[in-house]
């Protein structure tokens, strides 16, 4: 039993080290996305195109943050995701309403 417990602990430690490597990988992705966004804005690309891409990048970045940095990929996050995404949905409708239906 004793041996098994230490083995288990070793396994968990190793898994955590690996998770941490993923976190660093996530971080570098975020940096890359940010750099691309800033770079695209300073380039001469079509403004509408850039707008779409940087918003997409922002959403992807936030997804990475939520799933890795905030541990949403772990078990036991069903209810948190339900109500957090519920809030995001309500927020999306709010932004849509205020953007589309304020000036005409």
């Amino acid at each position: 039993m004793e041996e098994r417990a230490t083995f288990n602990e070793e396994f968990i430690k190793e898994k955590r080290r690996q998770d941490m490597r993923h976190q660093v990988l996530t971080f570098s992705m975020l940096i890359i996305f940010t750099l691309i966004s800033f770079g695209m804005v300073m380039s001469d690309l079509n403004a509408m195109f850039v707008r779409m891409v940087i918003i997409l990048f922002a959403v992807v970045q936030v997804g990475f943050q939520l799933y890795y940095f905030m541990h949403m990929n772990e078990k036991g996050h069903g209810m948190p995701s339900l109500l957090f995404y519920g809030g995001c949905f309500a927020g999306f409708l709010t932004v849509l309403g205020l953007v589309v239906l304020t000036w005409w």
Partner: peptide
């Protein structure tokens, strides 16, 4: 987490 869901609406507004 639920509070953060509310905060999402707050910042969306």
């Amino acid at each position: 987490w639920f509070f953060l869901g509310g905060e999402a609406v707050l910042f969306a507004s």
